[in-house]
Simulated assay, not measured.
Amino acid sequence: MNLFPCTLVYVDVDAKPGPNSTNRDPLSYVSQAICLNNSLRRVGLPTLTIMTNAPEQVARRLAGMPAENRPAVTLLTATIELPKNTPFYAAHFKLDLMDQVAESLPADTMMLLLDADMVALLPLDPDLIERCAQAGLGVFDISDQVFPAYGSERVVADLEIVAERRLMNPRWYGGEFLIATPAALRRLVPRARASYARYLSESERLRHHGDEAFISAALNALSDEGQVLIEVGAYQAVGRHWAGNNYRDLRWFRCCSFVHLPGGKALLEKEARFDDFAPDRFWRTMRAAHLRGRVRHALKRIVRMLNVERLAARMRCTA
């Protein structure tokens, strides 16, 4: 089974930037995609395809690179409409990307949809690829991160609002990694479009916004109907890393095929300046960012404790 690695770069200068993006350059995601493509090349995976509504702008950004190192660029035909101040605005167009890929991929090729702010460290396990090919869908379950952070009742409520049904075993799936056969995509996309319509109409009731909400709802509904979902995180196919976060030991990520750095976009943009991806150089930079993040987290905790103590002291004085 062949793989088609692709990423979305949706360009709209009038839209609200992503919550985790500090670079206001609308083409900053192209730099991240360059880094991702360099890392894919190093581990022997196929060239990344950037799917974008602005192919000429993206091509100009890539023009200074050697042709053999460039990601491919394909026009994305965008069909969905939503308010431009919607959180994670650009990510919603992954639905159009999946629809387009479902109709264009040959039967012997699986889509490997990746966020641009990722790197490939190791080849994907061939046995995992085969399992995903047999099942049709490989997904990244991040429920153990999302449920405790926002409260399981609130997360489940959002999923069931968008799915418009009670779900047997509600799970939340990360949008940074999805592997799917064309046949499975053709089952998923219509269900995801229906979920998207409910997501849009119920947006004021929802705590969570972005592609993960309606894609997760659709995946849960398909699972309830018998669709097998291969959970790729258990195989360390992908890990989501936040600098300074103690969710996992940093060493765990070294054994992942892909690492997602939603808070490390600037790091990846700097890495993209090199012609080739060097894991040791990347790890040195990532480790330094992680240690700085640990210090920031510790200082924030201290400030919170001091504020609580000051408030308690004021209350004692006024009692």
Score class of each variant (00 low, 15 high):
M65T: 11
F177Y: 08
S216V: 12
A149D: 07
Y150L: 00
D144R: 11
I129L: 08
P71V: 14
C317N: 06
S216N: 10
H208N: 05
V119D: 00
A107T: 02
I161W: 06
Y89M: 14
L97H: 12
E160G: 05
R248G: 12
V162E: 14
T22N: 13
S257T: 05
G244I: 09
G136P: 06
H260D: 02
K270P: 05
R154L: 09
A218F: 00
A194Q: 04
D144I: 11
R292Q: 12
H297Q: 06
V58D: 08
E56C: 04
N169T: 15
V101E: 05
F140E: 05
A116L: 06
H290L: 01
E160N: 15
L178W: 12
D96G: 02
P5D: 03
G151Y: 12
P279W: 04
T181L: 13
P170H: 13
K300G: 13
N23T: 04
L82D: 03
A33W: 02
L291G: 09
A192P: 01
A59Q: 14
N169H: 15
S203A: 06
D141G: 00
L121R: 04
P17A: 03
L97K: 07
T77D: 11
R316S: 04
V308I: 03
N20P: 01
E103S: 09
V155Q: 10
S21N: 01
G263F: 12
K265P: 05
N85P: 07
A149F: 13
L267V: 11
D96M: 00
Q134D: 14
L75M: 14
R287V: 10
R292V: 07
T74H: 02
Q32Y: 08
S21F: 07
S152N: 10
A319W: 15
S195A: 12
L114P: 00
D144P: 03
H260L: 02
P55D: 14
P262Q: 04
F277I: 07
N85E: 15
L200C: 10
P55Y: 11
V101Y: 10
